[in-house]
């Protein structure tokens, strides 16, 4: 029962509490944003390159040509720092995921 109740809580959480701090962990941030470009070949590959965590935070906050800036209301400084630290530890993916669907 306890497991079921916890599962229910987890279920309810997104509707009630996805306010500021919606990100569960760095891999959630990655899978919800970064992966769409950085794992598909449309932007430089990052996983496995062990980028400097501070640089990751600065680039994500300020953007680059072709990359949007991510505002503090979307991802906090602490969440960005955690993302940078997580990314630094990531091994290279086995293979680049091809863009979803066939080439347009």
């Amino acid at each position: 029962m306890r497991v079921a109740a916890l599962a229910l809580l987890a279920f309810a959480a997104p509707a009630l509490a996805q306010s500021a701090g919606q990100w569960r962990a760095p891999d959630h941030v990655w899978a919800s944003s970064c992966t769409y470009c950085h794992d598909t070949g449309s932007a430089p590959r990052l996983r496995g390159t062990h980028p400097d965590a501070n640089l990751v935070a600065i680039v994500a906050r300020n953007g680059l040509p072709g990359m949007p800036a991510f505002h503090p209301s979307e991802i906090s400084d602490q969440e960005l720092a955690a993302l940078g630290a997580w990314l630094q530890r990531q091994p290279a993916p086995a293979a680049l995921k091809p863009p979803a669907g066939k080439r347009k």
């Binding site: 769409y36 598909t40 072709g66 863009p99 979803a100 669907g101 066939k102």
Partner: peptide, 26 residues
């Protein structure tokens, strides 16, 4: 047949962002 845009079938994508690589500018 069967060439598809993921967003027409309920899948998220940012494939259009690759257009920024065309000139490399913003």
């Amino acid at each position: 047949p069967d060439v598809f845009d993921p967003m027409q079938v309920g899948e998220l994508s940012l494939r259009t962002f690759s257009i920024f690589n065309y000139t490399g500018g913003n």
